[in-house]
Design a protein around this nucleic acid. Structure first.
Lengths: 123, 123
DNA sequence: GGTGATGGTGATTAATTTATCACTATAGGA
DNA sequence: TCCTATAGTGATAAATTAATCACCATCACC
């Protein structure tokens, strides 16, 4: 886990929140786990684009920060399940709202970003 | 503005949202602007730790993505004011909720991160 | 002994975001 | 002319996050 050089401003809630969930995958992971996908081998399948290594890193950080807990079942083959802690749960309403906002905003973003590229010249 | 090499997944709202506001300063900036600090020279003062250059970049991106608008008053010295667009406004309830969550979570995070360092050996 | 499934790590590089520093421009006024 | 305030940019470096790839371990089963 990377040791920050630039410290966190604990007095700013937005800063604190960004520190623990402001990364490419964490919201998605919390969301999927809350929806019932708890095992790494399944998460890597449902979360589109994530790799195994990155998944493990993110899960470890979420666990370290206290948003996820982990249960190890000594079965064969090994089974591990992650679950939301109380802190993690308390974030879910926000995640759902953000997801909703993002979906509504997607077309606008798409349009903006795509107008960058072509400039279809009509002859 | 950086040209992504890894594309955005528009079908995931969380992904989309992270793309436009998932950075160190954007939430804070939107928050401050909504609270009435609209000019760059003031924002650089209220947003603790941001530099002028970074501020300008973030404002430009927020404007580009359509969360902020900008009014230029041809006064001397030049006055520029940023304001929330409709999209920007629609994000405010979330930002407020996230800020609140972050403030509540701050003590927990602080404790976790500080237990890393000392290991005060009691002789 | 070899193979498969699952969870996990180490070392390294690539991608991306932030920070630094030095500039430009405008117009007012000393 | 020089200095001030404001807004803004260009080039570059540093910090941070994410991706790649190759590994290890366990136990069942063949």
């Amino acid at each position: 886990m990377y040791q920050r050089k630039i410290p966190i401003d604990y007095s700013c809630g937005l800063n604190v929140a960004m520190e623990v969930v402001g990364s490419k995958w964490k919201f998605c992971l919390l969301d999927e786990i809350s929806k019932g996908t708890k095992r790494p081998k399944d998460l890597v399948k449902v979360v589109n684009g994530i790799t195994k290594r990155v998944l493990q890193n993110q899960l470890k950080e979420l666990e370290f920060h206290g948003l996820l807990g982990k249960t190890v079942y000594t079965e064969i083959p090994l089974r591990v399940e992650y679950f939301l802690t109380e802190s993690g749960e308390s974030l879910m309403p926000l995640i759902i709202a953000i997801d909703k906002w993002g979906l509504a905003f997607a077309p606008q973003l798409k349009k903006i970003l795509e107008n960058q590229i072509p400039e279809t010249e009509e002859l």
